[in-house]
């Protein structure tokens, strides 16, 4: 048994293309997840009980079911309702809706970790609840939740391999296709892993850098 480096080198262009698809679907679903997550997280702490109930229901449902099944529901299930989605769009939506629930919990935790006195001080200056959230609570929460958000982004990037099952030629699927042609499993999977690692490590560095930038008064 030996490691056929040349097989890996030949596969690099195809893997790079796959990695670009992985990156694209992950970035788009993170953006979607962030929007959903912030709305959900805020709704979880909002004084209105209807908002709180809806958002907890959403979080519990999404956390309680596998992402793979959610992807299948969006891609194979929704056509039954007359909604035929392009695989990329379906995969992105499923991932976005999924990460929205996790980000929602992260945001809620961040908001609740800020001392009660901050909200009281802001409100006693005459700021509305929303203004106090927007200018006082959320900016402080953001600094605290960055590491957790970084974890979520990394997890989502890795979980994006699941959309290979609905025929999106992202990194994992590209690897599979090359292997069916070359039978170089070990070389190609190692290459795939390396590409994932390069991407997750980059995210991790970006998050570390932002954490440093956002710290105040030290």
């Amino acid at each position: 048994m030996q490691f056929d480096l040349s097989a890996l080198v030949r596969a690099i262009p195809a893997l790079l293309y796959g990695a670009s698809v992985t990156l694209r679907i992950t970035v788009l679903s993170i953006a979607m997840g962030l929007v959903i997550g912030f709305v959900t997280g805020l709704a979880r702490v909002w004084p209105n009980v209807v908002f709180r109930t809806i958002s907890s229901l959403y979080i519990e449902l999404i956390r309680g079911t596998p992402l793979l099944v959610q992807i299948f529901i969006v891609y194979f299930g929704l056509p039954a309702l007359g909604l035929n989605l392009d695989p990329f769009i379906a995969g992105m939506m499923a991932m976005g809706i999924n990460s929205g629930a996790y980000i929602g919990e992260i945001v809620r935790g961040g908001i609740e970790s800020i001392a009660k006195g901050q909200m009281e001080a802001a409100r006693s200056l005459g700021l509305t609840y929303w203004q106090a959230m927007r200018y006082v609570i959320l900016p402080q929460s953001l600094v605290r939740i960055l590491p957790a958000l970084g974890n979520e982004f990394i997890a989502l990037l890795k979980d994006s391999s699941l959309v290979s099952t609905i025929a999106i030629a992202e990194l994992t699927r590209s690897g599979q296709i090359i292997i069916t042609r070359t039978f170089k499993s070990f070389e190609i999977w190692s290459g795939v892993a390396l590409f994932y690692f390069i991407m997750t490590y980059t995210i991790s560095r970006i998050v570390k850098y932002s954490e440093k930038r956002l710290r105040y008064g030290e």
Partner: peptide, 18 residues
């Protein structure tokens, strides 16, 4: 919110925005 503008409140722990 309007009434509170006419009341200044000082807390034991200052509660400045860090």
């Amino acid at each position: 919110n309007i009434v509170r503008q006419s009341i200044g409140m000082i807390f034991q722990n200052f509660n400045l925005f860090p």
